[in-house]
Design a protein around this nucleic acid. Structure first.
Length: 596
RNA sequence: GGCGCCGUAGCUCAAUUGGUUAGAGUACUGGACUGUCGAUCCAGUGGUUGCGGGUUCGAGUCCCGUCGGCGUCGCCA
């Protein structure tokens, strides 16, 4: 060992002891006669002092050459700092190391990305990603990685205590055309054939249930070749689990327990259980989204029935066409959003597909007023005000469109205004479930005109219907609700799962609705269908998005900050420059010709 | 693929309506300084304004294209 302690260890109680520290020069302060260095490692910062008479002159002279990020080993005596010189910013701030020996372990070029927390300016993200070794040296990033480790370990411990066993599943698998685009790996042995990287271990974990491993868990890497977002990476990590002989309530109760433990251990928050559960239909009705942020209100109010009483052409034509008129009432919004502010909101909703933004301000007398007020009788405005619980100074924003259109616009407004008006405590954590998702949705895929209007699975084709929904498979698939549940944290989908179909008859009906004929089913999932025929227990599970949970628990606003080596929005790695070209020889072995 | 924001010194940023030699802080280099902790003080080095084209007497600034980063819609069972 090159050191006796870390830079976060030493306290007043260590005074008088001789210790050796190693670390990076976080900063240095040269006073001519002597010099101070803040020495950093991942445990903290300790001030090391090169001053006479404790430090020999030749060591002081050598210390003059130290620069940011040089790696040094120093030996000396731990001493309390002089009266009034303690630095409360650091845990070891009451002591300092009086250096008697210095060894330069390595030099550093002047860092383009400063790891020092004393530099408050954070470099552009492309620089951080290119020099990730420096970026990851920043204490905030080290805290993120440590938090990630704690969450992962907390999860593993929790499930291990409950008799779950960790089973690894393949990375090289088989492509299934449903769902996200696959990352493909060409086979050298079988020219023209490809492995696919797993989008999730879904099918394998069902096989494990059938194989009798009734409690499976895995920290699983997953891959989806789709476009990126602030909360989406092409490769990400799921805490994946599956159980046999359980129902949906068991999975949710299990995860409630995990959430309580993690919130208590990591954030010292007491989360009451059971976590609230809201159906998908209610979430869409009240918040316009299947992952509502429940840290603030701004609930949607449906005014479709009142709209025809107005003379406002936009509302009337929408309701005549079977659409909806819905609104949110923003408390204090009339003062927060000026004319120009509302123009900005209008531009914003146009980006979401709205044609415009109808609004009312609520004036001093509590009356709804705006440029469209003339189309609404006094009585009608009063009635709308009552429904909306509108108070003087509020702002009422409308969306008139098809149901999903109003959901999208009002959810967008709600989210934007919640942020802009700071309607919630950024440190607050809100956990809930959204349950009873529709089994099927109508395809609106413009790339594939033949598929438009056909049913597709909202989760995957093995999702079980609610017990009282089974009959709707025959008469009205749109009414069919699934044993599906999403864990929602602060408006993010932090995890999701389902109970799986284990009844061959139900499975075949679902395949039928999805237009998957026997041959296709056999070709794509033959192994699973075969396995299901050999005594499959009732089973189901869930997958938690580990990266997102770390992001939310750590208060980060993007997922890259909790992944050591993330990809850019164009799915490249700026440090390694992946993806890269390969040799012609490699392509030839794989029988691949590129067409650029 | 669409929309939007951004790209100026190693780094973070500024530069009036398109107008003189593109500035500041920091880093770096040299010097001063015995208790600092974003040390301080003095001096200095450092620029193809991402790249290419265009408009103009004149472009960091306006236009077109392109590359890169970010956000978002589509997409993500």
């Amino acid at each position: 060992m090159l050191r006796t302690h870390t830079c976060g260890d030493l306290r007043l109680t260590d005074k008088g002891t001789t210790v050796t520290l190693c670390g990076w020069v976080d900063s240095y302060r040269d006073h001519g006669g002597g010099l101070f260095v803040d020495l950093r490692d991942r445990y903290g910062i300790t001030q090391v002092v090169f001053n006479p008479p404790d430090t020999p002159q030749d060591i002081i002279d050598a210390s003059k050459d130290l620069r940011a990020e040089y790696v040094i080993q120093v030996t000396g005596k731990v001493e309390p700092r002089p009266e009034g010189m303690a630095n409360r910013k650091h845990a070891s701030g009451e002591i300092e190391l009086r250096v008697t020996e210095l060894k330069l372990l390595n030099k550093s070029k002047a860092p383009p990305v400063s790891p020092s927390e004393s530099i408050t300016e954070i470099p552009n993200e492309d620089l951080r990603l290119k020099h990730r070794f420096l970026d990851l040296r920043r204490p905030v990033m080290q805290r993120a990685m440590i938090l990630r480790d704690k969450i992962t370990k907390g999860m593993r411990d929790y499930f291990a205590d409950l008799n779950f066993i960790d089973v690894e599943t393949p990375i090289l698998g088989r492509s299934t055309p449903e769902g996200a685009r696959d990352y493909l790996v060409p086979s050298r042995v079988h020219h023209g054939k490809f492995y696919a990287l797993p989008q999730s271990p879904q099918l394998y974990k069902q096989i494990l249930m059938i194989a009798g491993y009734d409690r499976y868990v895995q920290v699983a890497r997953c891959f989806r070749d789709e476009d990126l977002r602030a909360d989406r990476q092409p490769e990400f990590t799921q805490l994946d689990l599956e159980m046999a002989f359980i129902d949906d309530d068991d999975i949710m109760t299990l995860i409630d327990g995990l959430v309580v433990k993690l919130a208590k251990d990591l954030l010292d928050i007491d989360v009451p259980t059971p976590l609230p559960r809201m159906t998908y239909d209610e979430a869409m009705r009240r918040f316009g989204h299947d992952a509502p942020d429940l840290r603030y209100g701004l609930e949607i109010v449906d005014l479709t029935d009142l709209a025809p009483q107005s003379d406002f052409g936009v509302f009337k034509s929408v309701t005549d066409a079977g659409g909806h008129v819905r609104a949110i009432c923003v408390p204090g919004g009339a003062n927060h959003y000026s004319r120009r502010g509302i123009d900005a909101l209008t531009e914003f909703v146009k980006g979401l597909g709205a044609k415009g933004l109808a609004y009312f301000r609520v004036n001093e007398e509590g009356v709804l007023d705006s440029n469209i007020a003339k189309f609404f009788s006094e009585e009608l405005r009063a009635e709308m005000g009552t429904r909306l619980d509108a108070k003087p100074g509020d702002l009422v924003l409308f969306s008139a469109d098809k149901w999903l259109g109003t959901c999208k616009v009002l959810h967008g407004l709600r989210k934007k205004i919640g942020e802009e008006m700071k309607l919630y405590d950024p440190k607050a954590m809100n956990f809930s479930w959204v349950v009873q998702f529709p089994m099927f949705e109508r395809t609106e895929d413009a790339d594939n005109p033949q598929a438009i209007g056909k049913w597709s699975a909202m989760h995957h084709p093995f999702t079980a219907p609610l017990d009282d929904s089974v009959d709707h498979l025959d008469d009205d698939p749109a009414k069919c609700r699934a044993k599906a549940y999403d864990l929602i944290i602060n408006g993010y989908e932090a995890g999701g799962g389902t109970i799986r179909i284990h009844d061959p008859e139900v499975q075949s009906k679902v395949f039928g609705l999805l237009g998957i004929d026997k041959e296709t089913a056999q070709d794509r999932f033959g192994f699973l269908l075969e396995a299901l025929a050999y005594g499959a227990p009732p089973h189901g599970g869930i997958a938690l998005g580990l990266d997102r949970m770390v992001m939310l628990f750590g208060g980060f606003d993007n997922i890259r900050d909790v992944i050591a080596f993330p990809k850019t929005q164009k799915a490249t790695d700026l440090m390694t420059e992946a993806p890269g070209l390969v040799d012609a020889k490699q392509l030839k072995e794989l029988a691949i010709k590129t067409d650029l």
